[in-house]
Design a protein around this nucleic acid. Structure first.
Lengths: 205, 205
DNA sequence: CGAAAAACCCCACCGCAGGTACAGTACCAA
DNA sequence: TTGGTACTGTACCTGCGGTGGGGTTTTTCG
């Protein structure tokens, strides 16, 4: 890796840690600069302003999360040919993954941007929007496949259902941080799993 | 109302509008004092610092929201003697209420505090915690009543289920703000309603 | 090898926001 | 009339985001 992009990565790394731990506004540039062992000028060489940093963080976060979901749902599909079973396995794996994170899910950068509206410019919000819509597409494809193989037991819009995956995770993060119980997010994912199961699974007896 | 508490209320009113519209950190004290038509000294007479303002906002928010839920669930119970039916009606009313809010749900102050950790002191987080645990108690009572009258069709912890009500609302707010679709929160509440229905309602045919 | 471009460092400075300190004042109640 | 409550006014300090400009090292490429 070239010297420049190495420094840039180091800035993003220390910024991400700090942002997830304390929030974006509580993370000062001077603090980032100190941790990354560069100067203020060095920082502003790589990022025009704090907004540019936020945008870069969000974009990187989306990539990582996309890979994570790809891997997770891919593994789930390997474990079962059935789309419903694969989804249920995927949600279980997701819950376990969240549960295993030290101190619960570290908190979603997307939500951080949402709750600090005026701090960010239009580009940041656009990146945010694309991320969430990407999740909708991903889960919509999953539910479409299930709906082709199984009857649905309640009148439910599949786009709304797809949004529910992200929604439950985001809500779970808020709740777990508010109460200080890290396990809540994983519990909420398991409840969503229960819903998916009841919504599609053939009723026994 | 005494002169002092009248000014205090005016400060809280303008602060709340601004916080819900732009976030807490983007709301400056100078802006608040201008809107409330007092001086900076006047502000600091009523609140020691921005933390005290946050705490007061959260506490007032909890009271208002509690009254709102009381009213809503009370009306639902008047419409049906059956606990499950009452809950389903209540969730429908809740979805309608959120839908009717201009520009969607204005955004929960609790989540605002969660995503700006270091900006607030322990008192604020404690107030936050109490609010969320209060919601859990409220919905737990509702689900207990339902569980006494109906069988439950999946192994589900009722505390987790109670948390899901708040979780879905908080998550819905994040999602709706991220995408810019105000209706998402109401849609998510309706999906939760669908889950509750499938979880408890006797299966016809 | 040499020059240009990239990747920084150093430092002085600005504006804004939160917050402090403290003296003075208007009003109301006992 | 006295004393508390509810402020106003002014001055000042700090930290942070951000700018400007000059200087230095490192890499790249002809």
């Amino acid at each position: 890796m070239a010297r420049g992009s190495e420094t840039r990565k180091r800035i993003l790394d220390v910024a991400q840690d700090s942002v997830l731990a304390k929030g974006f506004d509580a993370t000062s540039i001077e603090e980032i600069v100190a941790s990354a062992e560069i100067t203020k000028s060095g920082f502003f060489y790589h990022f025009r302003d704090k907004n540019a940093l936020a945008r870069a963080l969000i974009e990187r976060h989306i990539e990582v999360e996309d890979e994570l979901f790809d891997d997770l749902l891919g593994r789930a599909r390997e474990l079962s040919d059935d789309p419903l079973q694969a989804a249920l396995i995927g949600m279980k794996l997701l819950a376990e993954l969240i549960e295993d994170m030290p101190g619960g899910h570290p908190g979603c950068i997307v939500a951080t941007a949402v709750y600090q509206d005026r701090l960010f410019d239009r580009d940041v919000h656009e990146a945010n929007r694309r991320a969430v819509l990407g999740w909708r597409r991903r889960f919509r494809a999953m539910f479409d496949e299930i709906a082709q193989a199984y009857p649905i037991h309640d009148e439910v819009d599949l786009d709304h259902l797809s949004d529910m995956v992200s929604s439950v995770i985001e809500g779970g993060i808020v709740m777990s941080r508010a109460i200080g119980e890290p396990r809540i997010t994983a519990q909420q994912v398991m409840l969503l799993r229960s819903y998916i199961k009841m919504l599609f699974a053939p009723r026994i007896q």
